[in-house]
Design a protein around this nucleic acid. Structure first.
Lengths: 227, 227
DNA sequence: CGTAGAATTTGACAGGTGTTAAATCTCAAG
DNA sequence: CTTGAGATTTAACACCTGTCAAATTCTACG
């Protein structure tokens, strides 16, 4: 048997990569990722996550402050970014090449992200024309771990009357994605913010197909590049 | 987190599927797969394989006769055929859609075969036009577990002068595949057997590009459909 | 038929990832 | 400053898959 392996040096397996991925995403929004949040995202108990975090810390993949939270070390971040790059390239591939809808790709990509090999990653990148964003607009890390510079702003941070192009719809809720897509609210679409009703009221957005009104919970995941 | 799962009922994980896959292939050639062979194919020790086989037998996936060998149960065969179907569809996809060379696809497909989801399997099948064979000519099991009927014969079983179309090159040795491909000996090519030198001498095969001579070890993996 | 050598299994153990239940820590509110 | 709820960790354990070394079984040959 040939036993050629394209995977990383020993000890970096699926579970590890999923932890690093989740920690990376959580630390985008707060300083450190807490155990319970990590556990929730991974579908394990907090005690299980706690044990695993300690091991990841021993392996120098995360910086752990007990009772406070976890952060990635440079090596952990490297691996997380690699996984995220693969995830988002896969999403793009599934959408553009294989014709899956944008709300379907996350789950499939998740199943594949730790299994694909580097030549496959590179080939997808090439076939897709070296994309910088996934179908939802999230940035695809480059192979060197850097991220493209962008100017995405929450649509809710703009004043009514502002126009721009939707760049990112930031959620992993596939039903929300499906709905927003049906309303024409997806990356690449030029929109004008028409109004935000007070007291968490509806947000009116004008698209080429007309004006749509959505709740603020949905509106707050939409990011646009103002023009 | 949505946690949608596309994987099988509990307990059928990567390792299990790889065992079933290997046992299936080994039992194509002999009555039962022996422990040492299985261990070799999987890159584990015979004792490890022995332990695992006992567990697979407890789970009713293999029929085990101690000291004799293993056979698949109907359920084991079902899972093995599913994995093999996915492996061969992946090989076809990697070759036809993504442009990998036929000697490169086996390793990549192996890494993915236990990770892909059913919708992905179906979509690949569709994109490929419901192929019946992988790039090397192995049969792709149908979803119901049946296999297409074929009339493949070892080229060495024919008399010199016989002609036919190469249908299968039966090896997982990527160097052999590369070499045979370079010689123009791959599925779909019409060939004529020119001669077999005695005492394990070279085998002469005429292709549209000329006559090539290869060793009998290579010739015996080539199967043709006589015309 | 006996026996040596190969194949196989068993036993003892390890490492990874998870669980539940109990202990411990943190932090903000009284 | 105390305290109690919630977050976190620890302890004890389970399951899977593997290892190595020793015991066992099979088989083919003299």
């Amino acid at each position: 048997m040939s036993k050629t392996t394209y995977t990383d040096p020993v000890g970096v397996n699926d579970a590890t990569l999923h932890y690093l991925d989740v920690i990376y995403r959580l630390t985008q929004q707060s300083d450190a990722a807490n155990t319970t949040e990590i556990a929730e995202k991974l579908g394990v108990t907090p005690s299980g996550a706690s044990v695993m975090l300690k091991r990841l810390a021993e392996r120098k993949l995360v910086q752990l402050t007990p009772y406070k939270g976890a952060t990635l070390t440079p090596e952990g971040r490297r691996l997380a970014l690699r996984t995220i790059r693969r995830h988002r390239l896969l999403e793009m591939f599934l959408h553009q090449v294989m014709g899956f809808a944008w709300h379907e790709v996350d789950d499939h990509a998740h199943a594949l992200e730790t299994a694909i090999t580097e030549p496959l990653e590179d080939r997808m990148d090439e076939m897709l024309g070296y994309p910088t964003r996934c179908p939802h607009g999230h940035l695809i890390p480059r192979k060197d771990g850097t991220l493209p510079e962008v100017n995405d702003m929450p649509i809710l941070s703009l004043a009514p009357g502002a126009t721009g192009v939707i760049r990112c719809v930031d959620t992993d809720n596939s039903e929300w994605l499906k709905y927003l897509g049906e309303q024409g609210l997806k990356p690449g679409v030029r929109v004008t913010l028409r109004g935000i009703a007070p007291y968490s009221g509806p947000v009116s957005i004008e698209t080429p197909d007309g004006v749509v009104a959505i709740g603020q919970n949905l509106a707050e995941i939409i990011y646009i590049e103002p023009n």
